[in-house]
């Protein structure tokens, strides 16, 4: 029995009358890569953002290493301090990178180490340099984001997250904003992380990545988690007609 890093049980999320997540259940095994796929608007990103409580779920439970996130008890929100402490060990990478434009690559990575982990500037700078070297940007440390390509910016964003030494990494469509020729360098960094045993949850439209790197693939549609299984069973032998139709559309769009 594999230990679960994230346990999602019966999670519901409403935006006014619109239900974005419907009774979602999902277990994310530790040390594995779980990909969330599905059409846009299916709730993948919302679910991912609920895992670090950037988005507040309305009912159900999300447990990170056994600990409930966002609430002390059902309906009672946890304190900001407790939530921040839990977020420290959850890295997140965004579609739009969200690097801070007024800081260099190195400062972007060091900022969290200084403010959140309380490291000295020197120590944080050294750790930031290590993290940037790891994503292949040792020579770009002093550049501001505006002087970096999209792929480089996203790698800085990954370095910013891994420098905090998280136990879990969330990726929200990390390659969707990139020019096609820059997707590869970001996926390579993600594969390295996966090979090192990082627990990863990845919302993606890169079916190739899901097929080759994911240990589990979960398919969502209209706020429901339709199925979660091995990449092979979801992507190559899908049983559910909704998955079949999604993949058909995907293949048609990508063939020429």
């Amino acid at each position: 029995m594999q230990a679960s890093a994230v346990e999602i049980r019966n999670v519901n999320k409403f935006y006014g009358p619109f239900q974005a997540l419907k009774d979602v259940d999902l277990s994310v095994p530790a040390g594995k890569v779980t990909c969330l796929i599905g059409p846009s608007g299916s709730g993948k990103s919302t679910l991912l953002r609920c895992i670090n409580f950037l988005e507040e779920y309305d009912s159900g439970e999300i447990r990170i290493d056994g600990r409930l996130i966002g609430y002390d008890a059902p309906g009672r929100k946890m304190s900001g301090r407790a939530l921040r402490e839990m977020r420290r060990s959850i890295g997140m990478v965004f579609q739009q990178f969200n690097l801070w434009p007024h800081m260099s690559a190195r400062e972007n990575v060091a900022e969290g180490l200084i403010r959140v982990r309380g490291l000295s500037k020197t120590e944080a700078g050294a750790r930031a340099a290590e993290a940037l070297a790891k994503v292949g940007l040792a020579d770009k440390m002093d550049n501001h984001p505006s002087r970096l390509s999209g792929g480089q910016q996203q790698r800085v964003a990954i370095a910013r997250a891994i420098a905090m030494e998280p136990r879990l990494m969330l990726f929200d469509e990390p390659t969707s904003a990139l020019d096609p020729e820059l997707v590869g360098e970001v996926l390579t960094v993600m594969k390295t992380l996966a090979a090192e045993g990082m627990t990863m949850v990845v919302v993606t439209h890169e079916m190739g990545f899901a097929a080759h790197v994911a240990d589990r693939v979960a398919f969502m549609e209209r706020g429901e988690l339709v199925a979660a299984d091995t990449p092979d069973r979801i992507l190559h032998q899908p049983q559910d007609p909704r998955i079949q139709s999604f993949l058909r559309t995907y293949h048609e769009r990508n063939s020429f």
Binding site: R87, M92, N98, W100, G112, V116, A157
Partner: peptide, 11 residues
């Protein structure tokens, strides 16, 4: 996203 990135690392 600017603030979100900071919130997400626990700032």
């Amino acid at each position: 996203g600017q603030a979100e990135a900071a919130v997400a690392i626990g700032m």
